[in-house]
Design a protein around this nucleic acid. Structure first.
Lengths: 333, 333
DNA sequence: TATACTTAGTTAAACGTTTACTCAGATAGA
DNA sequence: TCTATCTGAGTAAACGTTTAACTAAGTATA
């Protein structure tokens, strides 16, 4: 038999209300003797409170949902880790949901999270989502979005990085180093993230007095395969380019592979800049110059923002735009 | 006001028991008319069942705990993904716990998982754990261990790969290719995993009639930093070696970096074999020859095993030893 | 017609907590 | 001494479901 608060109460010779108060540290009005006796029985019996019962009455599960596209994508573990640490610090626990950028999966998870009555949802929306379904609009649980925008949904908070600026700085750096024929291998331009990075790419050219060429934009998705294939194609078609600004590090790493195979040197023949600064960027040779996103911090801040809101310390800043940072390594001159 | 089963019952003109039965598909004894009416009201009201209330009475939360050292380590996202997919398929949800190989964190999470009444725990034990604490022994929730052994704990199942054999094959391959001075940069030998890999390393030498040299074992931990530092040291101290068998891919990738910096060619000058086959192994140049662990499958199987046990389809195999596979790429001759 | 069995539901207890309210006794003030 | 206040605890309702036990009405059987 599972030991409950009732058993503790009996053994300690007090009422269950008293036990409950002791457990929840609402014991200002309990004498030391009583409290110690209760505590002792709890310990002796190895009592573990049943949170589902308490959630039933408090309407709090001390659980957050984390919805991301895919934990297998190296950008997300850091972020997830940040969220988890932030949540854990406040005694919260995390339910992990991989949406695979699949709108249907996203909605079915959303429903599950509601059924399980999580106290909040940290959300990195599918890059495919352009419109809100009714499932979203009905949502009564607070949502904080991270990394990506979710238009049309009422949010409790929003955490992004300044993608335009990050891209701008990266491309400026390339231009300053004398690179002139920069191709941008981008992620899907449906998403605001990719659009902003492209905007930065354009602005850098303009500010440096160079005419950006539209053909230099190659739209794809955020995978190394895509980076590899497109770079290979550029080489084989003898396209005239001297550098690559990649939509993320995975794309850049794919480009590395293609260039290595063709014995093209980085950075002497071709310069490369990525985006994200995943852990591999440092390990690879030459080290990848990239725009670092503070992904751990993004996750951590998101959790923090969520918990602030839950605890109703309201008035806290609702939108954070974090700074990215250009990390210069060996893949650029 | 949140809409509950009670509202639905009133609006549909039936008892709450009837509503409950149609929700849970226990409706063999409900007429079509009644069921349809209930369903209609549910839809119209946007009713979402409260799983915490139902967990209260069924003693099932349809939630699994996943305890791993660190989701940020590239070996784990694949595994976590496997667990998640397996769980999700059966309508289960996953609570993510990063223990950081910290015994205290591990125990505090364990307690949380019990409080939240998860139905089972998928566990990759800390590599530091050698003995069971009372928190473990008191555990009444079923546990399936993955990847690592947990001695002294009653398990519902166990999923491992044959590390000894994997290492054996890798080292045999190295020897067959003519490498003779193989150094083994290992993870912490506290863990059975690392011990088994070392055992394979030894057996391969013996079977090939070569005397293994004890000095060729370098114990450290599973990080690229470690691989980098130790390889650099070997080079700088002019140690005579022609190949590296690394405890995992991260170590191998660290070794890559050190070798590249010193302009030592892979595989011409030094051959390298890793372990795990993380996604980077393929992307890096030259591709890393490595022992593939079916990490996704391990996770998936673990979830499957757990859910079988929960559903009491007992008699299912309690221990799975999965096969690893040598993946030959460019880092060996 | 009397009896037994089905059918399609309903009733009410139970799950393990939290918490607003109540209460008895002790203490203090007048 | 009487009343008011304070202290330390107890009582019982409530949270939203599930499910065993029950029931009323209809149908089949003898």
């Amino acid at each position: 038999m599972k030991v409950t608060i009732k058993h503790i109460a009996e053994l300690a010779g007090v009422s269950i209300a008293t036990v409950s108060k002791v457990i929840n540290h609402k014991d200002e009005k309990i004498t030391h003797q009583t409290r110690d006796r209760v505590l002792e029985v709890i310990k002796e019996q190895g009592y573990i409170p049943n949170r589902v019962a308490s959630s039933m009455v408090t309407k709090r599960t001390k659980t957050l949902g984390l919805m991301i596209p895919d934990i297998t994508n190296p950008f997300f573990p850091e972020l997830a880790r940040g969220v988890e640490d932030g949540a854990n610090e406040m005694g919260y626990t995390l339910i992990l949901c991989n949406s695979d950028n699949d709108l249907q999966k996203e909605e079915s998870y959303l429903e599950m999270l509601q059924e399980k009555m999580v106290d909040g949802i940290i959300f990195t929306a599918s890059s495919r989502r352009t419109t809100m379904s009714s499932a979203f609009l009905k949502l009564t649980i607070p949502v904080v979005s991270v990394d990506r925008e979710i238009e049309g949904l009422k949010l409790e908070g929003k955490i992004t990085v300044d993608n335009e600026k990050g891209a701008f700085e990266a491309v400026c750096y390339l231009l300053e180093k004398g690179y002139r024929k920069i191709y941008h291998i981008s992620g899907p331009l449906l998403s605001k993230t990719a659009k902003d990075r492209y905007a930065g790419f354009i602005r850098a050219h303009k500010e440096k007095g160079i005419m950006p060429i539209e053909d230099h934009l190659l739209e794809g998705n955020y995978t190394s395969t895509w980076g590899y294939d497109y770079t290979k194609k550029l080489i084989e078609e003898h396209v005239d380019f001297d550098s690559l600004f990649c939509g993320n590090d995975l794309i850049a790493l794919g480009a590395y592979k293609a260039l290595h195979e063709k014995n093209i040197r980085i950075p002497e023949d071709i310069g490369i800049i990525g985006f994200d600064d995943i852990y591999m960027a440092e390990i690879v040779s030459p080290g990848l110059t990239t725009v670092r996103q503070p992904s751990y911090s993004m996750g951590y801040k998101a959790a923090e923002m969520m918990l602030d809101r839950i605890k109703n310390k309201d008035g806290i800043q609702k939108e954070w735009v974090l700074e990215s940072k250009l990390i210069i390594r060996g893949s650029t001159k």
